[in-house]
Nucleic acid binder design. Structure first.
Lengths: 228, 228
DNA sequence: AGATGTTTGTGAACGCACGCACAAAGTCGC
DNA sequence: GCGACTTTGTGCGTGCGTTCACAAACATCT
């Protein structure tokens, strides 16, 4: 029954990174009225191999029934709990350009265990606007807002030049988890967790593979040099 | 020494994923007038360990000078070339909600080896609008646009419900690299490369670690369980 | 020129993650 | 109740990625 304390201690990072995808797949299935799935089926929907899925889930505990499969509701609830989505984390978003705008209105946030409690920007043109049912506040009030709402996770969607300063202010008032969309490396003290998402990076990785594909067709042709 | 043909064949995926960050760091340094860096300095700016950086770069060839370091311009140009950024890949973006809007106006795309050649949407309200200096076209013309511009990379920023259909149409007209922002798994034939970015996923991974932190605080009190 | 100092490039050891294959554990039919 | 079938959970081998540590290679100073 209570295998949690032992199992929960060390969930591999690679597994953690896949849990949200499993949860999304399970939510899909639940929405379609599916009550039970095998690891094979769920793996297909989630885009992984069944063996990997089973090993991942085994790190959370034993929530399947041999010979039957997993109960969708039960497993979804368990993953949800492990990810801490029951806690409705208060999130603050700084920087409301198009990207911040997208994040604020992203239904995935509100519906998946998060609660955007504050939108902040530096531009007086943007401050005061209503976005996703909220009034954009001034970044000057960052400390007050974070403390007041007990913000645990800070989202940075500012230009790279402002990112470090915003991050420092987040950290100074106790935020220990930061999601950074600015194309720069943030330096933070030990114990603060930063995840970075760079849209251009993803494209560049794709471009690398794309080039390899076209290269293997042309095979060993000299590239043209660029003269400055 | 031309070590390229041998070295270029197998660049580890993990290394490829870091190359864009190195390139960004080098561009930063070049902009600040730095001409030469050691692996230690560059690693700090890029947020990795120097040993890892050196091993990564060694997969591209030998572009450093022992006892001195790397020439910023030379290394940047080399990574740029390996990533295929000299080719100005034509990119098409489908789905111009706030996220698609953000992608279209993202300066990182235009300035880093990409050329957004088409914006497409299904909503008649959005078709015809001007975004980032381009007129949004109808998704009905997807095949024509892709073929006409020789689009190699397709970006999907639609709702999940439409993503697979758009993907299929991309693939049908020869696109082999897809960047998917929709929260769903795309199924594609062998040889087509898909990268997925899900904004909610990143938050959930952060939440997991955040929960672990707060748990370890609460559980530090009942260290000893009552045993029978 | 030789000695000294610095930094790269890499062989080797280690650790993590993935896939395989199978025993364990359950269901179902009779 | 028992055998056949299904599916989970996992021990193990393998391969990849990271880190360490050092020799090779270059610059600089005397």
């Amino acid at each position: 029954m209570i295998a949690d304390p032992a199992a929960r201690r060390d969930v591999p990072d690679a597994t953690v990174a896949r849990l949200p995808e499993y949860l999304r797949a399970l939510t899909d299935l639940a929405g379609r009225g599916v009550a039970s799935v095998s690891s094979e089926e769920l793996a297909t929907v989630a885009g992984v191999r069944s063996a990997k899925l089973r090993k991942d889930l085994s790190h959370l505990g034993s929530y399947g029934v041999r010979g039957v499969g997993y109960e969708v509701e039960v497993l979804a609830h368990e993953i949800s709990r492990q990810l801490g989505l029951a806690q409705n984390w208060p999130v603050a978003i700084v920087g409301l350009g198009y990207l911040g705008h997208a994040l604020a209105t992203y239904s995935g946030f509100a519906n998946r265990g998060y609660h955007v409690v504050a939108l902040l920007d530096r531009d007086p043109e943007i401050v005061g606007q209503e976005i996703a049912g909220m009034i954009v506040g001034s970044v000057d009030d960052l400390e007050q807002v974070v403390t007041g709402h007990g913000v645990a996770i800070g989202v940075i969607a500012t230009p790279a030049a402002s990112a470090q300063e915003v991050c420092d202010r987040f950290v100074a008032v106790g935020v220990r988890s930061v999601l950074n969309f600015a194309p720069c490396v943030l330096s933070v003290p030990q114990g603060v967790h930063v995840r970075k998402v760079d849209l251009a990076t993803e494209l560049q990785i794709l471009a690398f593979h794309e080039q390899r594909k076209t290269e293997s067709v042309r095979e060993s042709r000299p590239l043209l040099e660029v003269s400055p």
